[in-house]
Simulated assay, not measured.
Amino acid sequence: MEMAARRGGGEAAACKRRSRITLALCALLLTLSACSERMTAERAAPHPDAQIQPIYVATERELDQTGPIFGLKRPSGLKYFRTDISVPPSHQIGVIEWPEGRTDAASDFVVTGTQVFDGPGQMLGDIRRTEPGRETLVFIHGYNNTLSESMYRLAQIQTDFATGMPAVLFSWPSAGDPRGYIYDRDSVLFARDDLVTLLDRLTARPGDKVFLLGHSMGSHLTMEALRQAKLSGNTRLLSRVSGVTLMSPDIDPDLFDRQAEVIGKLPQPFLIFISKQDRALSLAGFITGSKARLGVIDEAEKVTRPDVTVIDFTELADGNSLNHFVPVTSPAAIRVLNGIISQAGREGTGFLRDMALKLPSARAVRP
């Protein structure tokens, strides 16, 4: 009787904890939904001291009837354009300086120019004319992202990490609404063939390479595209992927294992950035059945593949953006990550497995 009572008391306590977590996550979702006003990219005259980041965009988003902006409808085929993003001379590492009043290139991210291309060939010609390198960074954004937010985020990443590569944004048809989680998951499957098509075109010449950066649900799309390439026998494309980073991946860990199993040999380096304090992924876990997503696993060792490097950014979480962008919004994380990248390049040794980041420097942990 006493044991049964203790067991019953424990179950009741666990039920209360689950209820509190559920209420907290519901409150978070309601808060996100209430924040209906989203910032949009705006044009302004260039500033002589600003840094211009050309961002190339391949998008499935359709032109809405309300104006020349890309919306959330799911059309067929890709559209291509370039937008020149001006990063202000006062830019702070990890920050997108959205206008707080009148748009000013001296203090804000702004658009200074746009060119719409007739097709992929015209975009590729522009990339190769202005960016002679053979490696291209492809950014695949996550759930609840607008085109403006994704363009500015990629411009910020290009500035803070000085990648030296031309940057292409693959803008898939996210609803851009926190209530559109299921819509966005369906859009990932809708978009995977077009992502493969884009990557094929970016690697058409001998020696061309692509480095893939997937964020959140965009990590799921990245894995689906690689899996699709493998299933279709497109080994040429897989050999042209120079590396993959999944940042805060919104993927079920079991699904990731199955995707990786199908792909086989993963591109190298293959990095996964996690943070146990990622509140957005905690909400995603609640929506999908309370199972932890890959980006919030509690132990890096749970990813057992020897060809995957897991980097834990938990200690560098800064509270911004629900801790969902820590590797690219936390100044400390950016400095540490730039240092790791620089050191790996100098030593030619690549990345140690399972690096847990601690202030003020990185501590490497071998399994």
Rank of each mutant, 00 (worst) to 15 (best):
K230L: 04
D307W: 05
A105R: 04
T103H: 04
D250L: 13
T159V: 10
G264H: 02
I93M: 14
E224A: 14
T22S: 12
D177F: 14
D64C: 13
A155L: 06
L124D: 04
A41P: 01
D208V: 02
A300N: 12
T222W: 13
I85H: 07
P88C: 08
S216R: 04
L337E: 04
A175V: 15
A41L: 15
V365T: 13
S19M: 10
A45D: 14
C35R: 12
K79A: 15
I297Q: 13
F117Y: 12
T130L: 08
L199C: 11
V310P: 08
R20M: 08
D118Q: 10
T203H: 09
K291T: 15
F211L: 09
R61I: 11
I297R: 08
P166H: 02
E301W: 03
Q115K: 05
A284R: 08
V111I: 14
D118C: 11
Y152T: 12
M151T: 12
V95F: 10
V326A: 00
D298E: 13
L231F: 01
E11I: 14
L147T: 09
A58T: 03
P89F: 07
S33A: 13
A280V: 08
Q51K: 03
M165V: 00
T222H: 13
F117E: 09
E261I: 00
C15Y: 03
L63I: 06
D208K: 13
I272S: 00
Q156A: 11
L25S: 00
T349R: 02
K265S: 15
L266H: 11
I93W: 05
T159F: 14
G142M: 04
V244L: 03
R7V: 15
G119W: 01
